[in-house]
Simulated scan of single mutants.
Amino acid sequence: MSSVNIIVKPEAETPRPPPRERILAAATELFYRQGIRAVGVEAIAEAAGTNKMTLYRHFASKDELVAECLRGFARHVEAAWSALAEAVPDPKARLRIWVREVSNRVTDPGDRGCALVNAAVEIPEKDHPARRVVEAFKSAQRDRLVGLCRQAGARDPAALADELFLLIEGARVCAQSMGPKGPCCQLVRLGETVLQSHGA
């Protein structure tokens, strides 16, 4: 009987992401979970499997790294809005789904709130690059919401957008200060009341 030699090829290893991607991923997670001020560049470099020299080769300063992490969060939110618009053409339904999705997030015990709001609290300096990212993003979000409220037939789109914006931001802060079982649980009910009051 002849023997059969079986050659088992080792599984190909997943390529390791380049240093810049690893640094951004590590910094994004650490900033979100522990806070921007609490995390130093050494901890980020270690978590990314690199060193401070490499980190500073890709980012001129910690401030610039924070700003780029927030731009990543902003792009993620933009992608979510685009996906929602494609999946739910009806603007009234889209508003309600958006409120419900935010409610699901803020009532998740593992949620740490909005990364951009958290950054705004930690960074009061108006000329900080990360602060500029936050303000530009939130302004754009408010404009987007006004447009969506207009499409939904609201009698006063700007007023409805502001009320929803304040309700959402307040729920996020409340969830962090009082827990996911506190008043933030009322977000969907209050959101529906506000929407109906504006005819949307």
Results as ranks from 00 to 15, higher is better:
121 V>S: 13
128 H>C: 01
34 Q>M: 02
184 C>D: 03
115 A>D: 04
8 V>A: 14
184 C>T: 14
105 R>W: 09
135 E>A: 09
31 F>S: 05
5 N>D: 14
25 A>I: 10
110 G>M: 01
49 G>K: 07
81 W>I: 02
169 E>G: 08
180 P>D: 07
94 R>K: 07
155 R>K: 15
9 K>E: 15
14 T>L: 15
14 T>I: 15
115 A>G: 10
128 H>F: 00
43 A>D: 14
26 A>V: 10
196 Q>A: 11
196 Q>F: 03
76 H>W: 13
156 D>K: 04
161 A>H: 08
74 A>Q: 03
120 A>N: 11
83 A>Q: 04
69 C>S: 11
101 E>R: 11
165 F>G: 09
38 A>Y: 04
193 T>W: 08
174 C>R: 13
50 T>M: 03
110 G>F: 00
121 V>C: 10
105 R>L: 06
48 A>V: 13
42 E>R: 15
172 R>M: 12
117 V>I: 12
200 A>H: 14
68 E>Y: 00
38 A>F: 04
50 T>P: 01
153 G>K: 02
102 V>K: 08
112 R>H: 11
147 G>E: 08
99 V>N: 02
17 P>M: 06
136 A>R: 09
26 A>R: 07
76 H>A: 15
28 T>F: 05
78 E>M: 11
96 R>C: 05
114 C>T: 03
42 E>W: 06
65 L>P: 01
45 A>Y: 05
162 D>M: 12
7 I>Y: 12
190 L>Q: 08
126 K>V: 11
19 P>N: 12
18 P>V: 14
87 A>R: 14
132 R>N: 07
180 P>R: 13
101 E>Y: 08
187 L>N: 04
169 E>V: 02
9 K>S: 15
34 Q>V: 03
175 A>W: 04
194 V>S: 10
18 P>Q: 13
189 R>V: 14
182 G>E: 09
29 E>K: 15
3 S>I: 15
184 C>M: 07
179 G>R: 15
140 A>L: 01
189 R>K: 13
103 S>E: 14
12 A>V: 10
66 V>D: 05
142 R>T: 14
157 P>H: 02
35 G>D: 13
188 V>H: 01
78 E>C: 07
140 A>R: 01
80 A>E: 13
138 K>I: 08
160 L>Y: 13
122 E>W: 03
149 C>S: 09
39 V>F: 01
120 A>K: 12
9 K>F: 14
51 N>C: 05
161 A>S: 08
43 A>H: 05
154 A>L: 02
110 G>Y: 02
91 P>N: 09
118 N>S: 10
43 A>S: 09
30 L>I: 04
2 S>M: 13
126 K>I: 11
151 Q>N: 07
40 G>H: 09
8 V>L: 15
28 T>P: 04
67 A>M: 05
115 A>C: 05
123 I>V: 14
113 G>M: 02
78 E>A: 13
110 G>S: 04
5 N>M: 15
